[in-house]
Computed example of a mutant assay.
Amino acid sequence: MSRFAVASTPLAGLVSIQRQPLGDERGFLARLFCAEELAAAGWHGPVAQINHTHTAQRGTVRGLHYQRPPAPEAKLVSCLRGAVWDVAVDLRADSPTFLQWHAQELSARNHTALLIPPGFAHGFQVLEDGAELLYLHSAPYTPACEGALNVHDPRLAIAWPLPVQGLSVRDAAHPWIDAPFEGIRL
């Protein structure tokens, strides 16, 4: 019996994963990862790194980060505490949804995760103080392959649900997409 319901999004390859917790009066058990079940949803490869973030203040935005070849990565993003508005931007050069974004709420209550394939940028906005995310990465962080987009880029026109605040100095300095940006070739 599968512990996940997989739903497509408007961006090819980006899927929403609805966990199916089992619970009783004591609480619940929810499977966060199963390589065999998630392979059908697009997870290919090992879990190479796991990261946990805590973001204290509502409205804070982190992102939009990605990894270029030769170290592209898939991410499985889950919210363990609070709620976030999670955003993925398609940067794949040959994709029909190139530079389009999709966002959805991930929360501790809704047991939803996003499976973000290689070639996408990722970021999020905190909807509740003290939000915590768990990221599973298919490849280790490789600084030489890191890229990022500015969360205010008019070419993306991301409709953040709250006023953007709490950007790190580094995230605030990410460039806007320039005209010759051709995307990522995987």
Score class of each variant (00 low, 15 high):
residue 3 R to N: 09
residue 5 A to V: 14
residue 5 A to K: 15
residue 5 A to R: 15
residue 9 T to M: 01
residue 10 P to G: 06
residue 11 L to M: 12
residue 12 A to H: 05
residue 18 Q to V: 03
residue 18 Q to S: 14
residue 19 R to T: 12
residue 19 R to A: 06
residue 20 Q to P: 00
residue 20 Q to H: 13
residue 21 P to E: 04
residue 22 L to K: 05
residue 23 G to A: 08
residue 25 E to P: 00
residue 27 G to N: 02
residue 30 A to R: 01
residue 34 C to K: 05
residue 35 A to E: 08
residue 37 E to R: 00
residue 40 A to I: 09
residue 42 G to Y: 03
residue 42 G to K: 04
residue 44 H to A: 12
residue 44 H to T: 06
residue 47 V to G: 08
residue 50 I to G: 04
residue 54 H to R: 14
residue 55 T to G: 03
residue 55 T to V: 13
residue 58 R to M: 04
residue 61 V to S: 01
residue 64 L to H: 07
residue 66 Y to R: 10
residue 67 Q to W: 05
residue 68 R to Y: 10
residue 70 P to V: 11
residue 73 E to D: 14
residue 73 E to F: 08
residue 75 K to A: 11
residue 75 K to Q: 12
residue 78 S to D: 03
residue 78 S to N: 11
residue 79 C to D: 07
residue 85 W to L: 09
residue 86 D to C: 04
residue 90 D to E: 03
residue 90 D to T: 11
residue 91 L to M: 01
residue 92 R to D: 00
residue 97 T to C: 06
residue 99 L to M: 13
residue 100 Q to P: 00
residue 102 H to K: 01
residue 104 Q to T: 14
residue 104 Q to K: 04
residue 105 E to W: 00
residue 107 S to V: 06
residue 108 A to I: 09
residue 110 N to G: 12
residue 110 N to M: 13
residue 114 L to C: 05
residue 114 L to T: 05
residue 117 P to K: 06
residue 118 P to S: 08
residue 120 F to A: 09
residue 120 F to S: 04
residue 120 F to C: 13
residue 120 F to Q: 11
residue 121 A to H: 00
residue 125 Q to C: 02
residue 128 E to Q: 15
residue 135 Y to M: 09
residue 136 L to W: 04
residue 136 L to R: 09
residue 137 H to Q: 13
residue 137 H to I: 10
residue 137 H to G: 05
residue 138 S to V: 10
residue 138 S to P: 10
residue 139 A to R: 15
residue 144 A to V: 13
residue 146 E to D: 14
residue 149 L to V: 13
residue 155 R to N: 09
residue 156 L to W: 05
residue 157 A to F: 09
residue 159 A to E: 15
residue 160 W to E: 04
residue 161 P to C: 12
residue 162 L to P: 12
residue 163 P to W: 09
residue 166 G to R: 11
residue 166 G to D: 09
residue 167 L to H: 07
residue 170 R to S: 05
residue 170 R to H: 11
residue 171 D to M: 02
residue 174 H to P: 00
residue 176 W to N: 14
residue 178 D to E: 14
residue 180 P to N: 12
residue 184 I to L: 15
residue 184 I to F: 02
residue 185 R to K: 10
